[in-house]
C-alpha cells in the first residue's frame, strides 16, 4: 500500500471544517430557473396555488435540486484544505490525479425544501478506494457525503457523491488507435535464425531437427545440444500445443500491443516450446495446460509470427 493511500485513509471520516450556509434561502427564482433547465412542468414548483392544493405550504423545490443550494457559484472558493474532501483534493492533485469525473450520486430526501428554508451543509469524506486501473485512467474513487439541515437544525436530505480522480492519459481508452500505432518491434535475427521467420512468412511453423540424432529444438541454433551435430533439417509443426507457463503483462506498456497482454510459453505437441502471445481470450481465463493452436499472423509487410488462441475458439 502506498503512502498516498494511507494519507488518504487518514482523512476518511473528516470534514472540510465548519458547516457551509447556503448563499441564498430557497427561493422561487432559482427554482424556476432549475425547472426550466430540466423542462419539468410540475406546477408545484412554480405555482403557489397548485403547491397548496398538493398539500404544501407554498412553492417547493425539485428534490434533485438538493445539492444546488450549497453551490458556491462562479467565483467559489476552493474547499478548505484542512480536512475532508478539500484535503483529499490537495493530496490527489499533488500526486497527479488531476482529472475528475462524476461516477454516481445517491440522495435521500427527508422533506421537500420550500421557499424561505435556509440550508446548511456539512461535508464528510466518506471513503477513498485503493488505486484502480479504469478505462479513463489510473485513479481513486472518492465518496463524499453531504448532510443538509434547515434553519432549525433538522436534517432535510443527504447527498452522497462519488467521483473518480484519475491521472489523465493513463486509461485503456488512451491507447492509440491501431492505425496510429508504431509497428511491432522486429525480432532480432541472425544467419542461424532468419530461415525460421522466413518460413512463418510462407505460412509454415517449422521446428529444427538434428539429422544425426533426430532431436527437435527451438529456438533455432547452429548445433544440436544433444549430440553437437551441425547437420539439421526441419519438420512442420501441427500448431497444436498447451500453455506450459504464462504471465499477463500490465506494465510497462509498449504502444504496439494491447493490454493486459498474455504472454505464453507454449509446449507444442511435438515437444518443443516457444514464447508467443495468446489472443481471443480473457486474460483472467488463461491457465497452465490450456490447449492452444497457432495461427501465423502478418502484422505488417515484414513481420509474420505465430500467435496462439484457445483450441476450439473461432479462427
Amino acid at each position: 500500500m502506498s503512502d498516498l493511500y494511507e494519507q488518504l485513509q487518514a482523512l476518511v471520516g473528516s470534514t472540510s471544517g465548519e458547516a457551509t450556509v447556503g448563499p441564498d434561502p430557497v427561493n422561487a427564482p432559482m427554482i424556476r430557473h432549475m425547472v426550466e433547465a430540466l423542462g419539468d412542468a410540475n406546477p408545484v414548483y412554480v405555482d403557489e396555488a397548485a403547491a397548496k392544493a398538493a398539500g404544501f405550504d407554498g412553492i417547493v423545490a425539485p428534490a434533485t435540486m438538493l445539492q444546488t443550494w450549497s453551490m458556491g457559484g462562479l467565483h467559489r472558493k476552493a474547499p478548505s484544505p484542512n480536512g475532508g474532501w478539500g484535503a483529499a483534493l490537495v493530496l490527489l492533485d499533488g500526486a497527479g490525479f488531476t482529472s475528475t469525473v462524476a461516477v454516481n450520486c445517491e440522495q435521500e430526501y427527508v422533506r421537500y425544501l420550500q421557499t424561505g428554508d435556509r440550508v446548511t451543509v456539512t461535508g464528510l469524506l466518506e471513503s477513498v478506494s485503493e488505486e484502480k486501473a479504469t478505462g479513463l485512467g489510473v485513479g481513486h474513487f472518492v465518496t463524499t457525503k453531504d448532510e443538509y439541515r434547515d434553519q432549525d437544525g433538522e436534517l432535510v436530505g443527504t447527498h452522497r457523491f462519488r467521483v473518480l480522480k484519475f491521472k489523465p492519459g493513463t486509461g485503456r481508452n488512451a491507447t492509440p488507435a491501431k492505425e496510429d500505432r508504431p509497428l511491432r518491434p522486429r525480432p532480432p535475427t541472425t544467419l542461424d535464425t532468419q530461415w525460421w521467420f522466413d518460413a512463418c512468412k510462407e505460412g509454415r511453423l517449422l521446428i529444427q531437427r538434428c539429422t544425426a540424432c533426430g532431436t527437435l529444438r527451438h529456438p533455432p541454433g547452429p548445433a544440436c545440444a544433444s549430440c553437437h551435430s551441425f547437420d539439421w533439417d526441419t519438420v512442420e509443426a501441427s500448431g497444436k500445443g498447451t500453455v506450459y507457463s504464462f504471465v499477463v503483462t500490465h506494465h510497462p506498456q509498449a504502444p504496439a500491443f494491447d493490454y493486459p497482454l498474455p504472454i505464453v510459453l507454449v509446449e507444442l505437441e511435438e515437444g518443443t516450446r516457444l514464447v508467443s502471445n495468446l489472443v481471443d481470450v480473457d486474460p483472467d481465463d488463461v491457465e497452465i495446460g490450456m490447449p492452444v493452436i497457432a495461427e501465423l499472423v502478418a502484422f505488417d509487410d515484414e513481420l509474420t509470427i505465430p500467435q496462439f488462441r484457445p483450441q476450439g475458439s473461432k479462427a
Partner: peptide, 8 residues
C-alpha cells in the same frame, strides 16, 4: 409529490 425518499 413528496413521495420520493431516496434516489441513486
Amino acid at each position: 409529490d413528496e413521495g420520493l425518499t431516496r434516489y441513486a
